[in-house]
Structure formats: structure tokens, C-alpha cells
Design a protein around this nucleic acid. Structure first.
Lengths: 190, 190
DNA sequence: ACCTGAACACCGTTCAAGT
DNA sequence: ACCTGAACACCGTTCAAGT
């Protein structure tokens, strides 16, 4: 693939993607309240005035962040649920991705966005798009395990409800035993 | 019970409880970001300066809100999980409380607090206290259904994980059928 | 005991001017 | 094409003064 001529950095100047990345970082660290123009500008070592070259206002940054998150999650789930292995193995792999500590940043972002979605229509749209794709992919895997379409859909909801719910509880309350009980019940054959 | 002499309002002046109630209302409607001194003062029809008679700063209000929420939830769970009926009936009743639309406000508040708990130690404490009491009460009910202490604890985690998780998903994705599948599996006898 | 009103700092937003 | 710097508005915070 040919390298674009602009791929080599000609200056330390930013593009909008850099602001979105910094915004997601702030969201993970301190919630929506931490996604603020001046602190982000400070982190990126520019004046806050330069922010308004890339975005109309703070709200536009939040919307861009939501789109970026939504697109990224949808691409990820397609990649994660495909690939090699039996449906059972793939579901176990997905369950691990959602409960591992390595994914703390992702879960923090997701939780903040889902909290925002309760009062914000655009966030609700982003969540709906991501959920729809996730449930579709996971329902397919349950279908491959032998469940009817309707049962597979119900199991997919159960699967994600449990994984998200677990991430909401105090981490110490969730023992390895509890998780094993859950995963075994979730993946029990028809 | 004797009525306290101060129970009759002598003036339209506020106490800290009124600020906390307004703060919880704002939290439910617009998340933590909406819990701000000046808008709250406007809603309560006082100047923002008066806020600082009741609280040291915005953070103190948030802390008071967390304590109020935590105390209220712990009192509620004790009341809800006690009472008449078989353990099975009580668990079904609890499950309904967490999935009914009438509880939207409570769920919105809970979600915002759990999102905050990811980056805030005091919010994490409040969540821990509430979870601990909820899991304890629900584990007792599962114990009464015949599960061992360890299984009952695991089931309690499963129970709340599912209910919280469901509240995170897009409401339309959760069919009556999916919920019935879940509840039946959760409450299956040993 | 609770509130007002004025003051100040911080951050969102605008915009003319720079490179 | 992207950024600075100054300006202004909004809101958190302080505090002397009112009732």
C-alpha cells in the first residue's frame, strides 16, 4: 500500500483524531465531567483556542467521541466473534474479554457512555448501534450451538447482561466460583 | 410518635436535605455534570451563595448525596427482601423492582454513581456498602431455597449482575422472553 | 440560622491576527 | 491549514453584610 505523502509529520500540529483520543482518555480516567476543553488543551500542549479549529464546541467533541467509540466497538466485535474455534470457545473468549482487568479502560469508557445514554439521545443511538451488532453476533454463536433463533437471541441478551452487570458490581464481590457458575449456565447446551 | 416542634415550616428557608434531594434529581436527569451549584440554586429559588452555608463546596454536596443514596438503598433492600412470601416469591419481586419502568429514576441514579465509582474512592465505598448488603440479603434467600452458602453467594452475584446488566442494554433489545429465560434459570431449584 | 450580593477565578466560546 | 492571545460569559467559591 502506497504511503500517503502527508503521513510523515510535517509539524507538531494536531488533527481532530488527537483530540478525540485525548477525550476518550479523559473519559476513562474521570468520566464525562473530565472531558473539558481547557484541560485537554493543556494535555495536548496547545491553547484552548485551537480546539475550535477542529470542533464547533465541546458538544461536537463528545459527539465525535461517541461516533469513534461506536465504530470501534462494532469493528472489534466483528473481529472478535469471527475467527477460528468452536462457537463455545469463541463465546468463552468473548466472556473473558469483558471480565479481564486488562480491559478496565474500555469498561470505564463504556460505563460512562451508557450512563450518558440515559439522558442523551446521541449517546443512546451509539449504544443502540453497538448493542445491536453485539447481540447479533453472539446470537449467531448461540444459534450455532443448537438454540432456536428466538432462544439464541434470549441467550445473547443474558450473556451480555451478565457480563455488563458483573462489571458494575464491586470487583471483590465477584468470585472466580461465581463467574464459573455463570459461564457454565450461560453456555449450557440446549 | 411526638411531632417535633420544628416540623412545621417557619420559613421558606432550606436545609441541607433539600439541596441533596435537588442534587439527586439533577443526577437522575442529567448525570453528575448536571449536579452544579448555580443551576441547583436557581431550581431552589435561592442565590448560589446560600449553598455555601450548607456545604463546604460542590464536592461536599456530592459526598452527602452518596451517603444519602447509600443509606437509602441499604434501608430499602432490608425492607424489600424481608416480609411475607416464599423465598422464590421474594426474589421474583426483587427482580421486578429492578426491571420495571417505574424505577427509571433509581436506575439512572445508580448508573451514574457506579460510573463515578470507577474513578472516585468515596463513590466506590458507597457502591461497595450497598452491594455488600444486597448480596448478603439475596444470598440468604438463595440459601433458603436450598443452595449451599457458597452456591447461594454465587447465585446472588449472578442475580444482580443480570439485573444491572439488563438495565445497561438498550431497553428494546430485552424481550419479555429473554427476561423470562433469565429469571427461570436464575431461580431454578438446586 | 440562613440568605443576599458583590467580588474573583476558572473554563467554554469567539474571533482577529499570526505562521 | 492550524494555532495564538485577548476578550467575554458562565459558574464555583469567598465573604461581609443583612434578617
Amino acid at each position: 500500500m502506497a504511503r500517503k505523502p502527508t503521513a510523515t509529520k510535517r509539524s507538531p500540529r494536531l488533527d481532530s483524531a488527537a483530540w478525540i483520543e485525548a477525550a476518550l482518555e479523559a473519559l476513562a480516567d474521570g468520566g464525562l465531567e473530565a472531558v473539558r476543553v481547557e484541560p485537554l488543551a493543556k494535555a495536548l500542549a496547545v491553547t484552548k483556542g485551537s480546539f475550535y479549529w477542529h470542533f464547533a464546541d465541546r458538544r461536537a467533541l463528545i459527539d465525535a467521541m461517541l461516533t469513534s467509540w461506536s465504530d470501534g466497538r462494532i469493528a472489534a466485535i466483528r473481529q472478535q466473534s469471527g475467527g477460528a474455534g468452536t462457537p463455545d470457545m469463541r463465546l468463552r473468549h468473548l466472556a473473558e474479554l469483558y471480565t479481564r482487568h486488562a480491559n478496565m479502560r474500555g469498561l470505564a469508557i463504556e460505563l460512562s457512555i451508557r450512563a450518558l445514554a440515559r439522558s442523551d439521545a446521541r449517546a443512546a443511538d451509539a449504544v443502540r448501534a453497538v448493542d445491536s451488532e453485539r447481540l447479533k453476533q453472539v446470537a449467531q454463536l448461540f444459534g450455532a450451538l443448537g438454540w432456536t433463533a428466538s432462544d439464541a437471541q434470549a441467550r445473547a441478551v443474558l450473556f451480555y447482561s451478565y457480563l455488563f452487570g458483573e462489571s458494575l458490581l464491586d470487583a471483590k464481590a465477584v468470585t472466580v466460583r461465581a463467574r464459573e457458575t455463570a459461564i457454565r449456565a450461560l453456555l449450557a447446551p440446549p
